[in-house]
Computed example of a mutant assay.
Amino acid sequence: MTTTQQKPSVEPPPGKNRPHPPLTWRQRLGRLDVKLSPYLYIAPFWIVFALVGLFPIIYTAVIAFQDWDLVRNTGEFTGWDNFAYVVQDREFWLSLRNTFSIFLLSSVPQVIVATIIAAMLDKNIRAKTFWRMGVLLPYVVAPVAVALIFSNMFGDRYGLVNSVLNDIGLSSIAWHVDVIPSHIAIATMVNFRWTGYNALILLAAMQAIPRDLYEAAAIDGAGTFRRFFSVTLPQIRPTMIFVIITSTIGGLQIFDEPRMYDTNGQGGSNHQWETITLYLYKTGWGEFNFGRAAAIAWILFLIIVAIGMLNFAVTQRLIATDSVARKTKKSRTASKAKHIKKEVGK
């Protein structure tokens, strides 16, 4: 007679094969909160962006292909006729020329002067808060007030600038007649408002630079300008890219200053300082041709996107070139040090 031995039951070790107890309601809610909370935190931004940003862009694209009637809120599909008319219009190319001219006269000096001001405020000077608030004060002033004040300063007959020029023996400048002087005057308004704002952004980036880098550079014998170009500028390059891109977008969308530069706000008798946004405003609310105005807005949008991508590509290329140059310099320094050690060992 054979007897069968019963094997003792062995519980499975804790691991993947062991069944987990069912989750409670609170545990399920906690897991759901961990998964959804990041999306809920950013949801308000995307909701507002969809309402005031994405929807107007899409709606403007629809209107751009129609002969839109604002009263009936309907339109007749016209295809690419609005875009073809804008591209063939001489006034559009004049406004595009004026926009790029004012943009270059404002953005380039603005970034340079803002960087210099930020470097000065980064020093150990007295009354730092006072000077920082003073730099930001022009940004707080309303754009309309700035435009009215500067338009009177650059008056052709009784302006302050021409009076000073006459006092020192120079002839008056036709600020409201000639093309380049009018662009310089409008660019001066833009620089007055935005230079201090950009300076504070760059100052915040400069203050985040470790002071040890400056001390090490000073020990190596680097002077003030050498430390600025070798330490400060490379460290604030991402912030500099941000400032350049935002100033580019703002410079191409300039409206308040040319609109308030004279009494009629039409961009000059011969379109001397009429920008694209002013041309868009005249087409939409002057001629009530909102389909054509939407086409102008989309052309401006594509121009801004193209220039922004070009700026980003150029700055990224500069960063890559600078990083490669630094790695090459480090490798050369290391090889030189090894060679010196070998010579000393011999």
Rank of each mutant, 00 (worst) to 15 (best):
Q5G: 11
Q5R: 14
Q6A: 13
K7C: 00
K7V: 05
K7R: 09
N17D: 15
H20I: 03
P21E: 13
L23E: 14
R26T: 08
L32A: 14
K35I: 11
K35Q: 11
L36R: 00
S37P: 00
Y41R: 09
A43T: 11
F45E: 03
W46N: 01
I47K: 03
I47E: 01
V48P: 04
V52Y: 15
V52K: 08
F55Y: 15
T60W: 09
F65P: 01
D67A: 09
L70H: 04
T74K: 12
E76N: 07
T78I: 15
G79Y: 08
W80H: 02
D81T: 07
N82I: 09
D89L: 10
R90E: 14
E91Q: 13
F100Y: 11
L105N: 04
L105K: 05
L105Y: 12
S107N: 12
V108Y: 04
P109M: 10
I112A: 10
V113Y: 08
T115V: 07
A118I: 04
A119E: 09
A119P: 02
R126N: 06
F130E: 06
M133I: 06
L137S: 12
L137R: 05
V140D: 02
A145H: 01
I149V: 15
I149F: 10
N152W: 14
D156S: 03
R157W: 05
Y158Q: 14
G159M: 06
N162A: 03
S171V: 08
D178Y: 10
V179T: 13
H183V: 02
H183T: 02
I184C: 05
I186R: 03
I186G: 01
V190N: 12
N191M: 15
F192Q: 01
R193V: 13
W194Q: 06
T195C: 05
G196V: 02
G196Q: 02
Y197T: 06
Y197L: 05
L200K: 09
L200C: 07
L213N: 06
Y214P: 03
A217P: 04
D220T: 01
G221V: 08
G223L: 06
T224L: 10
F228W: 15
S230Q: 09
T232A: 01
P234A: 04
Q235P: 00
Q235S: 13
P238V: 12
I241T: 14
I245Y: 00
I245T: 07
T248G: 07
L252N: 06
Q253C: 01
R259N: 08
D262I: 00
T263V: 13
N264R: 11
N270C: 03
Q272T: 10
I276Q: 08
L280Y: 09
W285V: 06
E287I: 05
F288T: 04
A294L: 11
A295V: 10
I296A: 02
W298D: 05
I299G: 02
I299K: 03
I299L: 15
I303M: 15
A306I: 13
I307E: 05
N311L: 14
F312W: 12
V314P: 08
Q316N: 13
Q316I: 01
S323N: 13
S323L: 11
S323G: 00
A325N: 11
R326D: 14
K330Y: 09
A334R: 11
A337N: 08
A337W: 05
I340K: 10
K341R: 15
E343H: 01
G345N: 14
